[in-house]
Structures are given as structure tokens and as C-alpha cells.
Simulated scan of single mutants.
Amino acid sequence: MAPPTPESSLNGQIAQDSTPIFQRIKDYLVGEIAAGRWKEGDLVPSEQALGRQFGASRMTVNRAVRELTAQQVLTRRQGAGTYVAPQKYQATLVEIRNIADEARARGHAHASRPHLLERAVADEALAPRFGLVPGAPLFHSLIVHEEDGRPIQVEDRWVNPACAPGYLEQDFTRITPNEHLMAVAPLQGASYSIEALPAPRDIAAMLDISPGTCCLVLNRSTTSNGMVASVVTMWHPGHLYKFTGRVA
């Protein structure tokens, strides 16, 4: 390859110089994280050190760091410095997803902790969602899903026994409810909604967050063989999670 001409080198220099310094600092910090040189929880260089590296004023460096903090790329700990923020776990919204597969796809370990497995009955609010009469039998499970030891979802699920008669006999430390239901009650359709809600005290305790912390809450019902098979509410810490989707 021919060496760059003086003109091309000058054009490159002009292009670099036209980028504001604060943006170059942001690009550098994001690039180091994307390349894996800095990982979640790592301390990033101080504003003073970045100022020396880029020949920038403290105000300019502070702007770059503040903007990345607002974007949840970095997090500040008063008196301790600035760190790489916890990653946002990405979940697919359009498809019926298996949280264990998503964790493994990220190279992480999935674990689940059942808090409740019980026989219950449909109350006046649940019965219409299943097309059942109040008092009809249902199965109920409450499970906390973890990724690399961190709680990332509370799954509060109600199941129609007619669709999954062996639901309560499953070992949900080894198989997820989604995996079992997809095997015994083939998916016919689904409807869902998503909203941001403050975590109640019991959900907060299971997710290891403060009560009132904003959560992304996915409500979903699935049908199989002409019946509503499952109604589930899934709570995710808002600062750790995002949902994505694509329509072809």
C-alpha cells in the first residue's frame, strides 16, 4: 500500500481536529469498554489524568464523564471515583424467549431459585384472563432468575393445569418454566405489555434492590390448543435491563 500523501495526512488531521475534545474523550472511554480492556466495575482514569492525556481542561473532561454517566455507561461513587457501569442485559421482546438461553448466549451462567410452587385457584381478576370461572384450579410459581449470581428477573407465573398437568412436579432449578411449557403446551399465540413500575418491597428484596427502584415489568399471556396456558409477570431491574425487538 502506498504511503499517505501530505495532502491525505493533512485531511485526516483536519478531520480529527474538527471533533470536539469532549467527544474524543467519550469515544476513547466507550472504545476501551467495547474492546473489553475495561470491564464492569473497573475504575476508569480520573478526570485529572484524562485532562493530561488529551490536553483538555477539567471542565471539558467533566462534560464527557457526565454525559456517559447520564447514558449509564459510567457510574460515579462519591469519594471513590468513576467506574464502568453495570451492563444492561438485553432481552428479546418480540419472540417468546428463554432467559437461560439468553444468559448462556452472553457467556454467563444462569441459575434459578424457586420461592413458591403451589396449587391455587383463579380469583376474580385472573379467571377472565384464562377464560375460566372464579375458583377454577391453577398452578402458581414464583422464581428468581440469576445471571452470574446477580438477580435479574422475578418471574410470577400462573399456569392452566389443563395445558401443563405436570407443572408442579418439575425441578425448576434445572429447567425453566418456559422450557417446560414450550415442550408440553406448544405455543399458539401470545400477547404482552410492558411498563415501568416501582419495585414493591417483596420484589425488591428478591432482586436485591431498594424498594421503589424502577423496574421494567413484562406482562404476558400465551395460548396453546385454543386455551390460555400461562399468565406471567416478569420484573427486571430497570438499570440493568433493556428489551429489544425487530420486525422484518
Rank of each mutant, 00 (worst) to 15 (best):
Met1His: 14
Ala2Val: 07
Pro6Glu: 08
Pro6Ser: 06
Glu7Gly: 07
Ser8Cys: 00
Asn11Glu: 15
Ile14Lys: 11
Ala15Ser: 12
Ala15Asn: 10
Ala15Glu: 11
Ser18Pro: 00
Ile21His: 00
Phe22Trp: 15
Ile25Tyr: 10
Ile25Ala: 07
Lys26Cys: 05
Asp27Phe: 13
Val30Trp: 02
Gly31Thr: 05
Glu32Cys: 01
Ala34Ile: 08
Ala35Tyr: 09
Gly36Met: 11
Asp42Ala: 13
Ala49Ser: 14
Gln53Gly: 03
Gly55Tyr: 08
Ser57Val: 03
Arg63Glu: 06
Ala64Tyr: 03
Val73Glu: 05
Arg77Gly: 04
Ala80Arg: 15
Gly81Ala: 13
Thr82Asp: 07
Thr82Leu: 12
Tyr83Leu: 10
Tyr83Glu: 02
Ala85Ser: 13
Pro86Gly: 13
Pro86Leu: 13
Pro86Trp: 07
Tyr89His: 14
Tyr89Ile: 04
Tyr89Ala: 07
Ala91Met: 08
Ala91Gly: 09
Val94Asn: 03
Glu95Gln: 12
Glu95Val: 13
Arg97Ile: 02
Asn98Arg: 06
Ile99Glu: 08
Ala103Trp: 03
Ala105Ser: 06
Arg106His: 12
His108Met: 15
Ala109Ser: 10
Ser112Gln: 15
Ser112Gly: 07
Arg113Gln: 11
Arg113Ile: 14
Pro114Met: 14
Leu117Ala: 13
Ala120Lys: 07
Ala122His: 12
Ala125Gln: 02
Leu126Asn: 04
Ala127His: 02
Phe130Leu: 02
Phe130Pro: 00
Phe130Trp: 09
Val133Gly: 00
Phe139Asp: 07
Phe139Gly: 00
Val144Asp: 14
His145Met: 10
Gly149Thr: 11
Glu155His: 12
Asp156Ser: 10
Arg157Gln: 05
Val159Ala: 09
Ala164Ile: 06
Pro165Gly: 02
Pro165Leu: 05
Leu168Gln: 06
Glu169Phe: 10
Pro177Met: 08
Asn178Asp: 07
Glu179Gly: 05
Ala185Leu: 04
Ala185His: 02
Gln188Gly: 13
Gln188Arg: 07
Gly189Ile: 01
Ser193Cys: 05
Ala196Phe: 14
Asp202Met: 07
Ile203Met: 05
Ala204Lys: 09
Ala205Ser: 10
Met206Asn: 01
Ile209Glu: 09
Ser210Val: 09
Cys214Lys: 08
Cys215Lys: 10
Asn219Trp: 05
Thr222Ile: 11
Thr223Phe: 01
Thr223Pro: 01
Met227Trp: 09
Val228Met: 07
Val228Glu: 05
Ser230Leu: 01
Thr233Ile: 06
Pro237Cys: 04
His239Asn: 13
Leu240Trp: 07
Tyr241Gln: 09
Arg246Leu: 07
Val247Trp: 15
Val247Lys: 10
Val247Met: 10
Ala248Trp: 08
